[in-house]
Design a protein around this nucleic acid. Structure first.
Lengths: 107, 107
DNA sequence: CGAGTATATAAGATATTATTTATATAACTG
DNA sequence: CAGTTATATAAATAATATCTTATATACTCG
């Protein structure tokens, strides 16, 4: 089970979300990801490590470059967990209790 | 606009996710939420404050009790943001670039 | 090989978070 | 009103995260 802690924690940082948004447009190298931010290269490298550790990105080796791109798995897992809340909220306001009694709380 | 930072950050903690899972089963008071955990009441109160600040729960006043329940707004916002990644990943592997060029990165 | 480029790691400063114990507030209960 | 219950806040501590500068590694090119 990839880690929900790590995934949500990674998404909690606006720089990291911006990196993911950039990667949604396509693969990018570390230096390409450094450029739009006012942070140093080591800072971005660290953010990338966090994102990779959370399973949100993957990296290739291409000579001296390490292009990053989005990874599917973690997003799916987050979606699945949020689905629980979504369903609870859709099933709604007035009668939350009864309808949802069948759901198992969490690990 | 409720805060994505706050929302994801709130979700990054397993105790808080467990609290949300419990609330998906229906409203609960602070003491009811304390019971299943091996944490003190002040610790849970603080977690609830974080969840409330993130817009993930709301509270009523009922005498001396403060029953909590899920709030819809933050989940919707998170969903929306994750939707960007989801679409990028669905549009997929081979040709991420072209298809997604129309997307705006982030705030 | 030697210089330059791309990236990673280390060390250190500072900030933030999570927790506990102790205490405060406020509402019910007899 | 006094005691009890439900919850919040404060102070102290410990662990974690983030950033910077400095430096290491590892490819590439002439």
């Amino acid at each position: 089970m990839p880690n929900l802690d790590a995934a949500f924690s990674a998404l909690a940082d606006p720089t990291r979300r911006a990196i993911l948004a950039r990667l949604a447009l396509g693969e990018a190298t570390v230096m390409e990801l450094v450029e739009p931010f006012e942070l140093t290269q080591p800072a971005i490298s660290r953010h990338l490590k966090v994102l990779e550790g959370a399973g949100l990105i993957v990296r290739r080796v291409e000579g001296t470059k390490r292009p990053c791109r989005l990874a599917p798995s973690a997003v799916a897992e987050i979606d699945q967990w949020l689905g629980m809340l979504r369903r609870a909220l859709e099933a709604n306001y007035d009668r939350l209790d009864g309808v949802l009694a069948a759901m198992k709380p969490e690990t």
